[in-house]
Design a protein around this nucleic acid. Sequence first.
DNA 1: CATGAATGAGGATTCATTCAT
DNA 2: CATGAATGAATCCTCATTCAT
Lengths: 234, 234, 234, 234
Amino acid sequence: MQPRSPARNAARRLPRDQRVAAILLTARAVLRERGSEQFLTAEVAERCGTSEATIYKYFPTKRDLLIQIAESWFDEFLAEDYPARASGSIRDRLYHAVWWSLSSIRREPALTRFVLMELRADPNYRSMRIYQQNREVVGRVMTVIEDGRDKGVLRADLSRKLVRDMIFGAIEHQTWAYLRGEGDFSVDESAEQITEVILRGISASAPSSGSLSDAVAMLEQVTASLKKQSAGES
Amino acid sequence: MQPRSPARNAARRLPRDQRVAAILLTARAVLRERGSEQFLTAEVAERCGTSEATIYKYFPTKRDLLIQIAESWFDEFLAEDYPARASGSIRDRLYHAVWWSLSSIRREPALTRFVLMELRADPNYRSMRIYQQNREVVGRVMTVIEDGRDKGVLRADLSRKLVRDMIFGAIEHQTWAYLRGEGDFSVDESAEQITEVILRGISASAPSSGSLSDAVAMLEQVTASLKKQSAGES
Amino acid sequence: MQPRSPARNAARRLPRDQRVAAILLTARAVLRERGSEQFLTAEVAERCGTSEATIYKYFPTKRDLLIQIAESWFDEFLAEDYPARASGSIRDRLYHAVWWSLSSIRREPALTRFVLMELRADPNYRSMRIYQQNREVVGRVMTVIEDGRDKGVLRADLSRKLVRDMIFGAIEHQTWAYLRGEGDFSVDESAEQITEVILRGISASAPSSGSLSDAVAMLEQVTASLKKQSAGES
Amino acid sequence: MQPRSPARNAARRLPRDQRVAAILLTARAVLRERGSEQFLTAEVAERCGTSEATIYKYFPTKRDLLIQIAESWFDEFLAEDYPARASGSIRDRLYHAVWWSLSSIRREPALTRFVLMELRADPNYRSMRIYQQNREVVGRVMTVIEDGRDKGVLRADLSRKLVRDMIFGAIEHQTWAYLRGEGDFSVDESAEQITEVILRGISASAPSSGSLSDAVAMLEQVTASLKKQSAGES
DNA sequence: CATGAATGAGGATTCATTCAT
DNA sequence: CATGAATGAATCCTCATTCAT
């Protein structure tokens, strides 16, 4: 009997795309705040100002919604400018790629965790779009490593997988800690240090000038003199 | 009226400790196989040959049970002989500590995952026994790092936290992949490579010939000659 | 702004009758394939290329739509030529009527099932058009029976209802089995056998004591006397 | 705080078997009154004085419950004394078997309908216990037919399947009509008439020689002569 | 005439937890 | 000590139907 205010109606009736976007946005927030396990369609509906039925009109399944949240987010930050430098020192390029991964992930730690810890376990993960998206992210870092190997600047005697696990293990470990509220961290600094450890390790022997080659050069000198010395003695 | 066989009774009526142990053991298997999300008290009861009510007699809450599972497991492997070498090269000691963490975790990836990804997020985590237990594990590795720093063998310009995150990030990343069934990995090799990267990084050693072994070979010669020399001088 | 192709428009905007017909046709297919329980208005709309709202424009209720599907189908096959033979032997006419029912029903077993098992249970069934239509179908068979009775060729000591139930019970039973995919059946043969059993039963021979044989005996006597009589007269 | 009356408690806590029986009984009533489609677990729970959860404790699925209702009912009446007479005339034995089927089915038309129209359509029907139970029922009738054939008392030129379909088609048709409230019927009479039609058909004559056409031919002759005669008399 | 958008009212199933015996 | 019985409170998902445009 009582006609609803047009304003209310205007808010209620949205074109498909906007509604989908609105749901996705709200759902992303819910996923961020609750995690996938406590993610309730009812809460999304309420916070979104719609009914659960409407959500199910656009997303066949709760899981599908979750996946699309992740995908849309990956879409977003994969679409951001990523000035993939093909030139510059390996160190610069690696730092840059690590920095970018770290900062992307840090922006949505909960979503990332969902993708990396739950979706990745899905039997169908490999056939999801998110799989390709994730490959893209990892690829940006690994391309640098690959290049370095090709140029002989990086060692090729360590398994790529291990190197990858160390870099992303570190990135994720940092992020989860942040997610757990164990304190913030500086993306710059973290990327810097990860790069450093990956490239140079933490041994103190690294000589002032920089690379290992210096040390080797010294060693060669020492060895040579010792040889001479011992030759003269005999 | 019909007396049950004593054997049956014996199995049914257990002293508190044995019952608790039995439940814990079964529950651990369930947690391992199902993960904490699919962990059902009903399944534990059934596989354990008791009733859910009995479980609730000893464990006030499903969560408490889960926590105790984790704690009892940590107890177990923390109790194992860990020949914490205070001597030996930093490399050896670090390798040893990493190897030990990796192999412990790999033995029960699902339990570890539960501890590291779920319990760690609990607001009360810091006041749980498992927190101390986990610190102990991490400590075994970090002690080596600390020592190295003290002796000036390791760089002190990188944040301890970062180093810790890289080591355990790598360890966990490896383990999760294994847990997801993405293929097994060699604990030895993995520990070796993690140690290597952490200590030396992945920059090419730049010795003309190439591999690090060359440098090592040279070093050995030098060392040997020097020993002879000093022996001769005395 | 962008004008749609006229063809598209033509397809979209249909005169009432055509739209109704289109919906009815599609809906019939859906009813056939899914059964009334799995009959979804959404599927009809989609397969029909319209919206559910349009369907509700023409059919106040899902049930109304279902009813009209049934009615339109009955209309169709009741409109087919049915050469109701008023002459010929009762056997021929009965066979013919049974054959016709059987083949009509077999053409749309799912629709028939809906009518006979679900609509028939509706409290308002008797006031539906489909009720009259169904009576027509049954009537075509029962007319033959009635005729046979009138002519004294068929026994009148068995309840009409029972005879009707046997004939249509057999027809429907055959059809449901077919609908369940329990194998096809020959309409010809089935009609033949139903006719046979209805008319003659399955006894191998008319027993002496039985009533029929008495009648036959009498008939033979009568015939004989008449023959004599007529022979004597000529 | 307020202790519940023991009476209430006594009613609430039942041994497993009794609870299962109670649920089954209530559920049977609900199935009878509502049909399987409107069968709500909630209604069963309420009328049974328990919760839905309790029902699901004993019956894994709504469908399982439905199936068990049917099975337990079949069990019941298959357990009743069925004096399967191996002697006596075929007519007596057939009448007896038909009568028994008819009266069993008539006692629970809704349940029967569920079994015969819905379960029978289930892909797994053949592997259900109810399938065997139903075979038993049908078998009791078909055994008589088979016997009659063996003894040469019944024709063997008609397909068994057809005969079966006619008998049970008739039985079911009668029963559905009754279920729809189209009026009661006398089991005795119905069984009598079904037996009669099946055995002897509805033709008014069955001449010793064989086919009905002979009798018809004679009748036509008689009729013709009489017509002539009456014409000649006028 | 046509429909995109929206939803109310379910409805089956799950599971940790309680408690009388 | 042990447990059989019971359930409250969710939670995902469905679908016929309405209505503003």
